[in-house]
Amino acid sequence: MTTHEFLLTAWDWNPFVLAACVITLLLYGLSCRWKFSGKSFFFLAGLVLCFLALDSPVSLLARGTLFSAHMLQHLLLVLIVPPLLLMGLPGSGAHGQIPGRLLPWGNNPLIAWFSGVGAMWIWHVPALCDAAASNGSVHVLQTFSLLFLGVLFWRPIVSARKEDRLSPLAGIPYLFTACVACSLLGIWISFAPVGVCPVYMNPVDQLGILPMIRNGWGLTPIADQQIGGLLMWVPACLIYLGAIMVLLGRYYRRPIKEMEIKNARKK
């Protein structure tokens, strides 16, 4: 199988994922009466990325073949999809309060922080990581928990409702410490002398794609795990950093906006 063929054919088209995505989209459309704003772009992007994480070849590889693909999926589900979905929600309206109603303690930043960091660490305990990669139902549980914990983590930062958010200057240490915690795990995975998820060290090649990966892509199991660790370490940190920049932007934004209006009026 060539890479090209693989990328074309290795799609899951899992009916549940498809249905979930479509239903979410319908609900979202109904709630805003099909009037999409700039914000909706975030929501749609989040939905598309969620779909890609769960149905594209990444998902196939993540199930016991490539650790780095698993990490990509993991990071998408915790660090990218949840904030995009949250940013896409309307700033007011009943649904904004749903999470708060369901989880009264979900607003506690400490719990939120531990959700985000825990989502990274717990699922990389070797036994759990192995189980999720090889057992279908554990994988489903993992997927849901990652999305859920991701939403909890990101709510204090990017929640559409301003009252749920931490103040920008409190958000910076929140994100920075999460970044450190995530990096430490990434560093451990990158340098670990042993397989963090043993399943990926000797994958069972059901699809006949292992020769392509090992020879065509040149990915040895060690390099694969190293890339996984590095993904968690470097790009993940860039996401936290990006969020910190957004917070600083928010902190500084108000005065300068008014300034520009004033300058424009003067001219």
Partner: peptide
């Protein structure tokens, strides 16, 4: 661009660890 000079400092500081 005070804001950008200030925020880019934070970006540099954090990136410098990575």
């Amino acid at each position: 661009g005070y804001e950008f000079v200030a925020a880019s400092t934070v970006a540099i500081a954090i990136l410098s660890f990575g």
